[in-house]
């Protein structure tokens, strides 16, 4: 079974050289730490930056330079700033190659719910609805089951939807799964030490298993 770092490491393997990537808050932010050295990947921050650098050293933080999680950051050679309309313009126009974000639920046809739990304080969708409606490729980092042990990979989302038919790939603590265009979670890899049976038990939506399922290599 993977911890959060393991999920981030596995997702980093999906990031292609020469791509523009938007990382959501939480586990997705950690993915940046595992992109191989020498690979040319530009991270987009939807508050208006292409080319996110590492967190600053103490004393070098700049209140005018933050990421979409409001954390202090730095730039890298080749970074560019822009306003929020242009930022979502490049997202909407499909210029950002990959979006990695968290989810509360994903359905077997790729619907995602990640912004609202009825009865709880709603903080808002931020840029999530814009990103999922336009991204060319969306990978979700999430826990396979919730705290009550119920599957979060469902036939249909119960929570309010963030976007329809948009998720292409899911990495959880148990598995890597592709969401097929015709519906269904296709099991691609098992997490180290996890059996196919465990994944079956944790998946409420349609699970497609073809042949031997390899264990992931981290």
């Amino acid at each position: 079974m993977l911890d959060k770092t393991g999920i981030a490491k596995r997702i980093a393997q999906e990031v292609k050289d020469g791509s523009y990537v938007n990382l959501g808050i939480g586990i997705p932010t950690l993915v940046a730490n595992y992109i191989p050295q020498g690979m040319n990947v530009v991270l987009q921050s939807e508050n208006g930056l292409l080319g996110i650098g590492p967190f600053p050293f103490d004393g070098e933080e700049d209140p005018d330079l933050i990421n979409a999680g409001k954390q202090t950051i730095t730039t890298i050679p080749g970074s560019a700033f822009f306003d929020s309309a242009l930022s979502f313009g490049m997202i909407r126009a499909g210029k950002v190659d990959l979006t990695i974000l968290g989810a509360m639920e994903v359905s077997e046809n790729g619907d995602i719910a990640n912004w609202k739990i009825p009865g709880k304080m709603v903080k808002g969708m931020g840029g999530a609805m814009d990103l999922v409606a336009s991204a060319k490729h969306i990978i979700v980092a999430m826990q396979h089951v919730n705290k009550a042990g119920e599957s979060k990979l469902l036939p249909k989302c119960d929570l309010p939807i963030t976007g329809l038919r948009c998720v292409k790939k899911i990495v959880t603590e148990l598995a890597v799964l592709d969401v097929l265009p015709d519906g269904g979670f296709k099991l691609i890899e098992r997490a180290p030490g996890v059996s196919v049976e465990q994944i079956k038990n944790a998946t409420a939506g349609k699970l497609i298993i073809e042949g031997d399922i390899p264990e992931m290599i981290l």
């Binding site: 929020s84 979502f88 313009g89 909407r92 931020g126 840029g127 609805m129 814009d130």
Partner: peptide, 9 residues
């Protein structure tokens, strides 16, 4: 509450 890109645009 409205999407961030919608707000900007």
């Amino acid at each position: 509450l409205i999407p961030q890109g919608t707000l900007a645009t």
